[in-house]
Design a protein around this nucleic acid. Structure first.
Length: 762
RNA sequence: GCCCUGAUGGCGGAAUUGGUAGACGCGCUGGACUCAAAAUCCAGUGGCCUUUAAAGCCGUGCGGGUUCGAUUCCCGCUUGGGGCACCA
């Protein structure tokens, strides 16, 4: 009896399923170990050979840990809300639920063939109402919480209301976008609507106006991590900046903890570094400049990390979206400023980045340098971002390259502040050298001058030390159908939570999945989308909502009283080993950490960080094949001869190619337009070109794991994927070595079966 | 531009606390079995010099350094991959 993988795998996979061999249950007598894969989005294309790489690694490690005596939790499920199913629904009218269901079934059967040791009793989909009930629940908790900067934790909103009624806005140090100060008396005199408006500026899940990434082609806003180079990550459509009122999560409140928590995690340096950059801590100072529009005086606050350069300020710049623009635009400059703001608005995000053209307009106002008393003009330019710092800067062209470019363009003065710095051709940005032209800072080194300048500013009441973070609050609304509905309705225009015991608020049926003609989200089509007679929120939650706490739900997936019971949480605690792609570095892995910290603050989970150790598996790339068609003909030339002709390179299905030799008859049968194709051969064969590219349907280079399982068996597939190289590394799929792995398994089999008899008794 | 990573035979890659470089596999070469082929098994396989062997020399991207000893540590380059990018 030879190594018969078909029989062996069938027998044991059935045995595992029947006996729930890998079912995990809390067991205080054994140490726990939690191994998790990033759950997949079940796309219509099914699994290719690259997807299971991480799953295979984690499965091997799970089995190893079990044999070492650990109680292993190793679950799997599906990230099932999302854009592709919805786009498909818009095109075909088919309910996304149906598409999702079919795709999940396909994924499951493919996963089953590979023989994973998942505890399938814990499987769920994020689009199941029993699951998204807890996504909605977490949102309500965030809505009902504020962030206390002093205690560095989230607290119930009632405690904030109490503080306001006793001491007004000054009574708390909270993470907020509120800029209106009020006393206890003023607070207590406010009506309900006014109070609600104020509280909205403090809630962790809040509704607020901000500049968002608007994608007209998708009809929805996108989060920063969903936009790449000015195009939507899904679909590649252009993205515009637009001011809109949206639900947001106050992730920025957790910036310090998200940064500091990285220290204790067993993640790769590169991934931690990516998160550090995304969070972007910078230490500096805020300073107040007095600005004058005619005879009206305003205080304009700026942020700088180079307080030492304040003697070299020759102008100020406001972001076009800044609230100061309106106040500081003089009568005479009004028309010009408005024209400029209009031109900025029309640009796509892409144009704004790519052009990097220096643009701007004079506001007509002047400001006073608080240290020198010197009068400097106030300009408006898109190179200043409204979302960072205060949306206004002091410009020091001699020592900042962006200010330098601006000063050159608009002929503004450039005053060098560092000894020996030549600023005739470019700015001197380095933080080194001796200060000159800088009053009391003269002679100091830059590194001494920065704190000295801030000390001076603080002492004279001009400003104070300040830490700024680049990380923005997460835009949490999507103008789409296939996502979690917000459990919020509008009572007299006041956003009001649906009571917890009425969750889940299930997604209604609608007739069509596209936005309405008036531009409202698809949920506007739902009949009676109301609660207690009041209209419900029409946007839905983004993809990352459902994936932010799924690892907690696996601990206790059937609990209808809590996201996770305190007992299950206390036993499984957090994920010990998490395997998944690096593409989630600044999305899912930030949101999950935020979400977990929030639940930790409220006492729902016992660990502050969700993922102890994280490994990023590399991508398995595809090896594509090409044929070369002579332009204007239906004749194809072999790769070695193609340079003698003018040809177009065309992807050809790798299933029609063996060892780069084309199956000519197969090719003719592939597509009607190739039925009468002619070929120019080399040595009687058509040789294809090749390249290593992303494995994808459109490049016809997808290798399906089912084929490998048919030919060699799941164990050969698993062993071979591990054999391809280090797990973290990207590598092309190349079956050259697969026979060797298969041979190894056959030899291994023969250790136990010697042609006619077993060599083992048990 | 800034940050993070990597570079080892014909190929994928081992060697992860500084101690025999090239494990394992692919490929290739030779042999056994067979009428023959496939499959299987055995042996060899970094380079140079040499008919062969012994012996020797050279070898971990490049140039220096530390050390009894460096793929491993330090400095400076070249180059592949990834991330960020008007963040004041």
């Amino acid at each position: 009896m030879d190594y018969n993988f078909i029989e062996i795998e069938k027998k044991w996979q059935a045995y595992w399923a029947e006996n729930h061999t890998f079912k995990a249950a809390e067991d205080a007598s054994r140490p726990k170990y939690y191994v998790l894969d990033m759950f997949p989005y079940p796309s219509g294309a099914g699994l290719h050979v690259g997807h299971p790489l991480g799953y295979i690694a984690s499965d091997i490690f799970s089995r190893y840990k079990r044999l070492k005596g650990f109680n292993v939790l190793h679950p799997m499920g599906y990230d099932a809300f999302g854009l592709p199913a919805e786009q498909y629904a818009i095109q075909t009218g088919q309910h996304p639920e149906k598409t999702t269901h079919e795709n999940v079934a396909r994924y499951r059967s493919q996963l089953d063939r590979i023989g994973f040791s998942y505890d399938w009793d814990r499987e769920f989909r994020t689009c199941d109402p029993d699951y998204y009930k807890w996504t909605q629940w977490a949102f309500l908790k965030m809505f009902a919480s504020w962030y206390d900067n002093k205690e560095q934790k989230a607290r119930p909103i009632e405690e904030l209301e109490k503080a306001f009624s006793e001491g007004g806005s000054a009574a708390v140090d909270a993470a907020t976008d509120n800029d209106r100060a009020f006393t206890a008396e003023e607070w207590n005199a406010m009506d309900e609507k006014e109070k609600a408006g104020i509280l909205m500026h403090y809630r962790i899940a809040y509704q607020g106006e901000s500049t968002v990434n608007w994608c007209p082609a998708l009809g929805t806003v996108l989060a920063n991590d969903e936009v790449k180079d000015g195009y939507s990550e899904r679909g590649g459509h252009p993205v515009f900046q637009k001011k809109m009122i949206q639900w947001q999560l106050r992730v920025s409140a957790y910036a310090g903890r998200l940064l500091e928590g990285l220290e204790r995690l067993d993640w790769t340096d590169s991934l931690k570094e990516m998160q550090r950059n995304w969070i972007g801590k910078s230490q500096g100072a805020e300073m107040v400049f007095k600005a004058f529009n005619g005879d009206r005086e305003y205080d304009v606050t700026i942020f700088t990390t180079r307080a030492d350069t304040v003697f070299g300020v020759t102008f100020m710049v406001l972001a076009p979206e800044s609230e100061w623009v309106e106040r500081l635009t003089s009568e005479g400059q009004k028309a010009e400023v408005e024209a400029y703001l209009e031109s900025v608005k029309k640009k796509t995000e892409r144009e704004r980045i790519a052009g990097k053209a220096v643009t701007g307009v004079f506001s007509g106002s002047y400001a006073l340098n608080p240290l020198t008393g010197e009068k400097v003009p106030v300009w408006i330019s898109e190179y200043v971002l409204s979302g960072y710092g205060t949306g206004a800067i002091m410009a020091v062209p001699a020592h900042d390259s962006r200010d330098y470019a601006f000063a050159k363009k608009f002929s503004l003065p450039i005053v060098p502040l560092i000894e020996g710095a030549d600023v005739s051709e470019e700015s001197f940005d380095a933080k080194e050298g001796k200060m000159i032209n800088s009053g009391f800072l003269n002679g100091l080194d830059v590194k001494e001058a920065i704190p000295a300048a801030i000390d001076y500013v603080e002492k004279h009441g001009i400003g104070h030390r300040k830490v700024n973070y680049r990380i923005r609050d997460a835009i949490f609304s999507r103008q789409r159908y296939w996502g979690e509905p917000f459990p919020v309705y509008y009572r007299d225009g006041i956003a009001t939570p649906v009571p917890e015991d009425r969750l889940p608020l299930t997604l209604p049926e609608i007739s069509e999945y596209k936005p309405t003609e008036s531009g409202e989200p698809p949920l506007a089509r739902a009949k009676d989308w109301t609660y207690g007679g009041w209209p419900l929120e029409k946007s839905t939650m983004p993809g990352f909502a459902g994936s932010s706490a799924y690892y907690l739900r696996y601990m206790d997936p059937h609990n209808d009283k809590a996201l996770v019971s305190p007992e299950a949480d206390a036993y499984w605690r957090s994920v010990d080993l998490y395997i998944g792609g690096t593409e989630h570095a600044t999305g899912h892995l930030i949101y999950s950490r935020f979400w977990n910290k929030f639940l930790y603050d409220l006492g729902y989970v016992c660990e502050d960080e969700p993922f102890r150790k994280l490994i990023n598996q590399g991508m398995i790339q595809g090896r594509s094949n090409f044929v070369y068609r002579i332009v204007g003909t239906n004749t194809f030339v072999s790769v070695g001869l193609k340079d003698s002709y003018d040809t177009t390179e065309i992807h050809v299905d790798i299933n029609l190619v063996r060892n780069d030799r084309l199956d000519i008859e197969g090719f003719r049968a592939w597509r009607p337009e190739y039925a009468d194709a002619e070929f120019i051969l080399e040595d009687g064969e058509y040789v294809c070109g090749w390249a290593v590219e992303k494995m994808s349907k459109s490049m016809y280079n997808v290798v399906n794991p089912d084929q490998i399982c048919d030919t060699y068996g799941a164990d050969t597939l698993r062993l071979y994927e591990m054999f391809l190289g280090p797990i973290e590394q990207s590598k092309p799929w190349d079956t050259k070595g697969i026979d060797g792995v298969n041979r190894f398994l056959k030899k291994f089999w023969r250790l136990f079966w010697d042609r006619e008899k077993w060599l083992v008794t048990d």
